[in-house]
């Protein structure tokens, strides 16, 4: 816990590890990286789904309970 600028104790971890100031260009780059990572993860989910269906076919749902 650290003493925040208001003079009160704060439990916010960002107060202990403040992020460096980002220029607008750095913020844009970070946003593009985040979007690319999100798209890559989404594509991976879709790939696993499609490959599962392709490998197992309709039998994927035909399992003993």
């Amino acid at each position: 816990m650290v003493l925040a600028s208001s003079g009160r104790f704060s439990g916010d971890p960002m107060e202990q590890n403040p992020l460096p100031h980002l220029t607008p260009e750095e913020q844009k780059r970070r946003r593009r990286r985040s979007v690319a990572l999100g798209l890559a993860l989404g594509a991976l989910v879709l790939l696993f789904y499609v490959v599962t269906i392709a490998k197992l076919g309709p039998g994927v749902l035909n399992r003993p309970l």
Binding site: Q16, N17, P18, E26, R30, R33
Partner: peptide
């Protein structure tokens, strides 16, 4: 890497943020 070093207290805290764009990766 965009680093910020906290020199006020020990241990030193360093926060790194990537500077690379998607095209660089």
């Amino acid at each position: 890497s965009n680093s910020l070093t906290d020199t006020r207290s020990e241990p030193t805290v360093t926060v790194g943020l990537s500077q690379g764009d998607v095209s660089d990766f």
